[in-house]
Structures are given as structure tokens and as C-alpha cells.
Nucleic acid binder design. Sequence first.
RNA 1: GUGGUAAUAGCUCAGUUGGUUAGAGCACUGGUUUGUGGUACCAGGGGUCGCCGGUUCAAGUCCGGUUUACCACCCCA
Length: 450
Amino acid sequence: MLERLPGFRDFYPEDCARRDFLFRVWTEAARRHGFRRYDIPTLEPLELFTEKSGPEIVSQLFNFTDKGGREVALRPELTPSLARMVGARVATLKKPVKWFNIAENFRYEKPQEGRLRSHFQLNCDIFGEPGPAADAELIAVCLACLRAFGLGPEDFALRLSDRTLWTLLLEAMGIEGTAAMEVLGIIDKLERTPREETLKRLQPHFGDASEDFLGQFGMLMALHEFGEMADFMRSLAPNAGIREKTETRLGVWRELLDALDAMELSPFIRIDLGIVRGLAYYTGFVFEVFKLAPDGPGYAGRALAGGGRYDHLVSKLGFPPTEAVGFGMGDVTMTQFLEEKKKLPPIIEAPDVFIVAAGEAERRAALGLAGRLRAAGIRTEYALRAPGFGKQFRLAGQCGARLAVVVGTDELAAGNVRLKDLASGGESVVPLSGAPAAVRVALEEGIGSA
RNA sequence: GUGGUAAUAGCUCAGUUGGUUAGAGCACUGGUUUGUGGUACCAGGGGUCGCCGGUUCAAGUCCGGUUUACCACCCCA
């Protein structure tokens, strides 16, 4: 038997209905925040991804040589394509550019929980605005995309961190450039790495003082109040230059937190410098959204969403420098989360009416009626192979139709059809010619059983 | 890429120390029912027991390999 490729999913109608629901909620949330939808090709030149992430990325791509000899790859993410689109027209696009997209992404990785070889991702990005107002706006739409499902601060939290602050901290400790990037990488994995292993990795950068530095990282990451964090950062500044840069950055923090507070989003925000994110291209505020652990204060599972500022990416791809901030949110983890929280509504795919025809003679009239009802926008079903009368009613009940329309011998002879409200059992007789209008009224008001 | 666990009907699973023709519930199809349903009753279809090989008189059951899935790593959004 032929099987699916590993890491891919079939979507049966009920799965598709659920996915449509997810996408619809996301789309509406994004549009409410003024984001416009764009789209990009599924297949891209391989170079687009190696340019951004280096040649190692190829091992994680679905890539091949096409019939024209081009090296191509299925997109693993859409940020590079997006940066290209924006970069190509950056001079004429009205700023800020606020765009969103929901698309399938592919990665050649070993499939595991919450992580397949194909998944759909919502992406929202803002280009052309360097100030924290853009970060606040982006965080607002990200939170909205979760809240729109009925999830609240008791369900999830956004952990907010800052690459700029980390860079300053490391600079204060005498670590800069690529060494700083490496240390950030170690910090990124701190939560899931044993202490001894972390110390070993810090050794090349801090030598015998590794233990002290790790202690300071730990203290910083444990601070979740802005005031405490600010004091801690000030206390570490070794000279006036870094002190001034730190003070400036803390001012930007204050602006961001103030905007989030004004939008009444503070209950969702946790200052948490433990987040640095693996990607090298992030430059400023970064964040990840986690579901809260059912018991206790911690977080559970894989990140539901993640994002941040990446001001250098567009220029790195060869376009004019353009500030950018964005986030992504995947359908796999999101669906799991919604199921867990019972926030997926029952999917109703039932027709509005089911037509019951008495016999062959009535069937022509029934088909004609079906056409007219459907033209009037009414979801209409009937049995393709007309079984007995009782059987047709059974089908009407099973499919969940709200109304049965009976095209009966006596009714038809008088130019009528009979409507039956399948919930109340109430019936009424209406003229065949006026059936669509009568059905519409019956769907809205129901038919009393009296 | 490494290790652990698992794989029996569309789904959830049972299947004794290896022993006749591999079962249940749900789902599906038909009938009871050619003028009243969803929720009654009866019947039916559906399986190379993931795949390949081995041990044995005999394998769903034991052994080896392989594929896939899940879990933990590695890597990474």
C-alpha cells in the first residue's frame, strides 16, 4: 500500500474544516490590526536560503535540481522571500508596511511532536519603522491571534527579551562580535542544558570566571520586574560609555512597556531575558509565546509563536537597509493547544435543507427546486439514489439539515411543497414557486410544532 | 544523525505457555419501512496481523533486519 511521505499530513474534510477555522480566526485578527495579505512562491532558488542562513541550511531543505538545471528548494520559511518582495519595492512602498501571510512551509528534518516536515504558519511583519511602537504593534497582533480563540492570560504568556540588552551586557563583560553570538547561543539553550555542560561551553569565553558569569546570567534571567532588571543592568556597566548606552536602551524598553500597558496587554507580558532565540539575524526585542504549565508558575511545551526585530536582514539580502519586526505562529502547536484548552468549536458542515421526493414523478420537481434553492444561496442536499420515503427522512436527520422540504404527490398536484422543521417537528405547506423565500424565512424563524 | 517504545478492520483496541476459519465497540452499507427522521431491531461488507527473512509439524504470538509512528537526545524555529 502506498503511504504518505513521512512528516506530511492528509487533511480529511473534518481536518480541513478545523484548519479553515484556524486560518479564518488568524486572518480576521490580522486584518483587524490593519495587516494586508501577500503571498510568495512555494519553490524558490536555493540561493535565497543559503544567502540568509549559510550552506548548512541545505541539509534541512527539500531541494533539487529542476529540469532547467536550476538549484531550487521548497521554502522552509517565508522571511527571505518577504524581505525580497519588500526590498525590491522599498522605495515606493508606503511605510509602515504591515503584511501578513498564512502559508505552508517545508523542512527536511526528523519529524517529532509538534514539528513535521510540512506545517502552516501565520507570519505578520512590519517594515520601515525603527521605534518600539512597531514592536508594540506586532506584539499586539500576535497576542490578538491567540486571544481571538478565547485564550487569555491564564492560558499563555509572552516572554519578552532583548538582544540589544544582552549585547550591551556582554560588551560590559568584554565579549563582543562573534564571541558574543556564540555566548548568546549558549544562553539560548541554558534552560535545557545541564549546568556542567553549560560551564564547559562558557569556559573558552570566560575562563575560570565562567561560574561567576553564569551566576550573573542566572540572576538577570530571574528578574521579571522592569525596575529590578534596569537596576541590575546599570550596576554592571563598567564605564560611562556603556552606562549611557544602557540608559538609552532602558528608555526604549520603557516606551515599549508603556505602549503595551496602554493597550491593556500587560497581563500577557513577562520580562524574561532567558529568551534570546537561535536565529542569528535578530537585532533588538525578541519574544516567544508559551502556554502556561497547568500546575505551578512555569511554561509547558514548545513555543506557540516567536518573533522579534531583524533590522539587518533586508540589507543583507542586497537591498536598501530597512527596519523590520515580525513573528511566526504554527498550525501544529496551535491546534494541539486549542484542543487541550477545548477552544475548537464543533464544526458544522450540515446543509440547510434536505429535499425528500415522493417518487419518480416528483423527482424532476425536486431537482428543479434544488437548483433554485442553491441559486438562492441555501445549502441544499438530496439523495442521489432516491430510496424510500422513510429512508430519505433518515438521511435528512443524519446529515443534520435544519429543514426537510417534502415534494409529495398531493402537495405537488396542488402546486405546493411541505416544509418540516427537523428540530421542532413543525410543518407548513407553501407554494412551490415561492419555496426559496419561504425556506429562508423558515431557516431564520423556525416552524412551530403547533 | 543516536537511543528507547510501539505497529492487528476506516477509528479505539482485545487476541492465553506458539495450535482449527483472527475478534469486539464505534463507523460504513443494506433491510425492517413506497408519506415522516436523527436515537429502534436485524443482517452485511471490510484484514497478506506494517514489510522482508529466519526458527518450528505449526508464527498475529519467538528471533533478525527494515519501514513508519511516538518519546528522549542532537540540530534547529
